[in-house]
């Protein structure tokens, strides 16, 4: 099947198998390997990306379902020398160790802050319940999300920006 979609601002047109998962399309066809696969049951969130600005688990979305939509991955959010405020907060607060959950965690955070720019700690923990991290004990991830929310409300506009 032919599918047309926008990935990190770039228009893509591709012939895909109907069963091709979005995460595999991104990783294998677009060479965007930040999103990872960590489970078979939609439990871990390592594959989280934004679809029209909302965070989704890309292991549960068929590529054809994303047709006509805007996909944003961690690669599209910022660059090593120019981190998005959420990415910068994760570095500042040491919110990552092995990094495997990180791109998904960052995208889930962007999605969370777009919906609730000033979450409480409890809301952050609930908002990230579907994103598993085996390394950090979540402590510094929560700090990073709260810090990103507090950084002059930058996170919400930035999220709007990338989904535009």
């Amino acid at each position: 099947m032919r599918v047309e979609l926008t990935v990190n601002g770039e228009h893509r047109s591709a012939e895909v198998e109907p069963r091709l998962l979005l995460v595999h399309f991104l990783r294998e066809r677009c060479g965007l390997r930040a999103a990872n696969v960590g489970c078979d049951t939609t439990s871990c969130g390592a594959c989280t990306v934004l679809l029209d600005g909302k965070s989704v688990k890309s292991c549960t979305v068929l590529t054809v379902q994303a047709a006509g939509q805007q996909v944003t991955t961690a690669e599209g959010l910022g660059e090593p020398g120019n981190l998005h405020p959420v990415q910068a907060a994760f570095q500042r607060e040491h919110g990552l160790q092995c990094g495997f959950c990180t791109p998904g965690m960052v995208m889930a955070t962007v999605g969370l802050l777009a919906e609730n720019p000033n979450p409480t700690e409890e809301q952050v923990r609930e908002g990230l319940e579907g994103n598993l991290c085996r390394c950090t004990g979540y402590h510094n991830i929560v700090r990073a999300v709260l810090a990103a929310a507090g950084s002059a409300g930058q996170a919400a506009p930035a999220a709007a920006e990338v989904s535009a």
Partner: peptide, 15 residues
């Protein structure tokens, strides 16, 4: 701060 982080946060680690 960790010098390895910007890579993990953007293009992601190379597992």
């Amino acid at each position: 701060l960790r010098t390895e982080d910007p890579r993990f946060l953007t293009t992601g680690g190379v597992y």
